[in-house]
Structures are given as structure tokens and as C-alpha cells.
């Protein structure tokens, strides 16, 4: 029952105390749902996209202090980014923005990166399907 409490930077604790963007987005354009194979934690990330720009992001996380802080930070980082730009956000960038994480907690920031990637992938597949569907419908119209 060892504890790791005093290992966090001030920035981590700040985001842990007041996490930004907690919750779900109704009718999101993308949802990322990932589990952490290391310790069994879970994160959900919701994004809203307009003209290829992420206009809103929210999260729900079951995990440690670092997991909550990185979730909060990643939602802050992606807002206003293009989908393409958001894909480039690495877990290291998230950790760095938090003033660093203890080495044993780096895997928690990976959870945030993966949740983001999976939300974007979800968006891309949905929008592709959407486009395809619209395409089809348009085609149908023409035939008729």
C-alpha cells in the first residue's frame, strides 16, 4: 500500500483539483473509449468537430490523479486544433504541458493520447460513412 501522492507537479495537482471539460457531449462527432492495460483504468473522450476543427472536447475517466490530470489537459490541448493537428498530440506533449509526470505515471498519459486518437478515428470513419451516404443519396436523387 505504497503511496505516490507527493510526486505530482503543481500543474498536475491543479488539473486534478479542477479538471476541465468533465462530462459527455450530446451527439458527439467522435467518441474514444480506451482501457489501460497496465493498471485497468478507463477513459472516454468526446469531440465535436466543425469544418475539420475540434470545437469542443469532454472526458470521463476512471483512474489515478495523473490519469485525471492528463485527461483534463488533453481536452484543453485539442480544442481549436484541426483534426489533423490534434492527431499529432503525443502523450509526451500532454505530460510536458503538465510540467512532467513521475516515470511510473507516464503510462497514464498514454491513455489520454490513445483516447484522443480513437475519438478522431471514430470521427473519421463516421464522417467518411456520412459522406459516402450523402454521396449515395445524391446519386439516387440523380437517377430518379
Amino acid at each position: 500500500m505504497r503511496d505516490v501522492l507527493s510526486l505530482y507537479s503543481e500543474k498536475v495537482m491543479e488539473h486534478f483539483k479542477n479538471p476541465r471539460n468533465v462530462g459527455e457531449i450530446e451527439n458527439p462527432d467522435g467518441i474514444g473509449h480506451v482501457g489501460n492495460p497496465v493498471c485497468g483504468d478507463i477513459m472516454e473522450l468526446y469531440i465535436k468537430v466543425k469544418d475539420e476543427v475540434i470545437v469542443d472536447a469532454k472526458f470521463k475517466t476512471f483512474g489515478c490523479g495523473a490519469a485525471i490530470a492528463t485527461s483534463s489537459m488533453v481536452t484543453e490541448l485539442v480544442k481549436g486544433k484541426t483534426v489533423e493537428g490534434a492527431l499529432k498530440i503525443s502523450n509526451h506533449a500532454v505530460a510536458e504541458a503538465l510540467g512532467g509526470l513521475p516515470p511510473i505515471k507516464m503510462h497514464c498519459s498514454l491513455l489520454a493520447e490513445e483516447a484522443l486518437k480513437s475519438a478522431i478515428e471514430d470521427y473519421l470513419t463516421k464522417s467518411k460513412k456520412g459522406k459516402a451516404r450523402r454521396h449515395k443519396e445524391n446519386a439516387k436523387c440523380k437517377i430518379q
Binding site: 505504497r2 503511496d3 505516490v4 505530482y8 495537482m13 476512471f62 490523479g65
Partner: peptide, 25 residues
């Protein structure tokens, strides 16, 4: 999750412990 409860308790001045995976090395 236990560690996040412990951290919050610690912020309120309470020292406890947990069997959570997240707080073990």
C-alpha cells in the same frame, strides 16, 4: 479509483491508504 480518492483526502488533510493498482509501484 483509490489513488484519486487518497489524493482528494490528502488535500483535505486526511491520510489514508488504498489497495488500488494505481498507487502501488
Amino acid at each position: 479509483e483509490g489513488e484519486s480518492m487518497l489524493l482528494n483526502l490528502d488535500l483535505e488533510g486526511i491520510c489514508a491508504s488504498t489497495g488500488s493498482a494505481c498507487s502501488s509501484s
